[in-house]
């Protein structure tokens, strides 16, 4: 069995007036250390699927296995989740923000400061531990959010459009940082994005979803020659434009 296994996932949202099917029969396997992107038109249930993998709520039908273990309400595997905005707590210092996950999981307090410092060093912000989030720029804050996510040593990182609120330059820099960090720690990651370029630049596989209800439409393998490069260099690679065109056409055909 693969590291992350999705088995026939169905999901419906219920409201007082209707039941809406958002995901239909999703089966996917992702191996350890792989970087996979989910793209698709809005309403294809990408974020819903991510929340299910994160264990925020169970799917109406189907199973999720992480590292061979079935995901259930009382067996929450350690998952790192990065949101569209940093959602750093403004009343906590950067150091407290980075270690909040450890605090929640009640790991020993002594090691927190060391972990925080090492991670902040890793994301290129060695001297901000005692500052407050409002004193940092948007790109820096998202880097702190990355450090917070990594602090609990998660098995899988789920990235829900984490670069969409940033300016272009910060976005490119952060893409490189994230890919580099994940490679160092050999982390498995899933990225949800609207940006085809970002998906190609960062991942080894791109999963295209169709909407209403969300199903897996097509899976694109990114050639090894590209996925070995940093996201910034992938964008400069001659093969990049062709892959972009292929995915773009497929996305267009979904309407």
């Amino acid at each position: 069995m693969e590291f992350l296994q999705l088995e026939n996932i169905h999901h419906s949202y219920f409201s007082s007036t209707q039941a809406k099917e958002v995901l239909r029969d999703i089966s996917l396997a992702i191996h350890e250390g792989e970087f996979v992107s989910f793209i698709g038109p809005s309403g294809c249930g990408k974020t819903t699927l991510l929340s299910i993998i994160a264990g925020l709520f169970p799917a109406t039908e189907g199973n999720v296995y992480i590292d061979g273990e079935k995901l259930s309400a009382n067996n929450q595997s350690s998952i790192g989740y990065m949101l569209q905005q940093d959602y750093l707590f403004p009343w906590k210092t950067i150091e407290e923000n980075v270690t909040i996950g450890l605090k929640i999981m009640e790991k020993s307090h002594k090691t927190h400061k060391v972990t925080a410092n090492a991670l902040l060093q890793e994301v290129g912000l060695p001297h901000v531990g005692n500052n407050y989030p409002r004193e940092l720029s948007g790109g820096m804050r998202q880097r702190v959010a990355l450090a917070r996510t990594l602090a609990v040593n998660p098995k899988i990182l789920l990235l829900d459009e984490p670069f969409s609120a940033l300016d272009y330059q910060s976005k490119l820099k952060l893409e490189d940082l994230v890919v580099e960090t994940l490679k160092t720690y050999k982390k498995t990651a899933i990225l949800v994005t609207h940006d085809i370029g970002e998906a190609i630049a960062m991942s080894e596989r791109v999963v295209l979803f169709s909407a209403n209800p969300g199903t897996v439409h097509k899976v694109f393998e990114i050639p090894k020659a590209l996925s070995e490069l940093s996201p910034f260099d992938v964008r400069q690679h001659p093969a990049y434009a062709d892959i972009f065109q292929t995915i773009w056409k497929e996305l267009e055909s979904l309407g």
């Binding site: 994160a54 264990g55 925020l56 929450q76 350690s78 998952i79 790192g80 989740y81 949101l83 905005q85 959602y87 707590f89 909040i100 996950g101 929640i104 999981m105 917070r148 609990v152």
Partner: peptide
């Protein structure tokens, strides 16, 4: 903002 709670929920709070 429910996203603040979501951050902690992913840590199993």
């Amino acid at each position: 903002d429910p996203n603040y709670s979501k951050v902690l929920q992913t840590f199993g709070a």
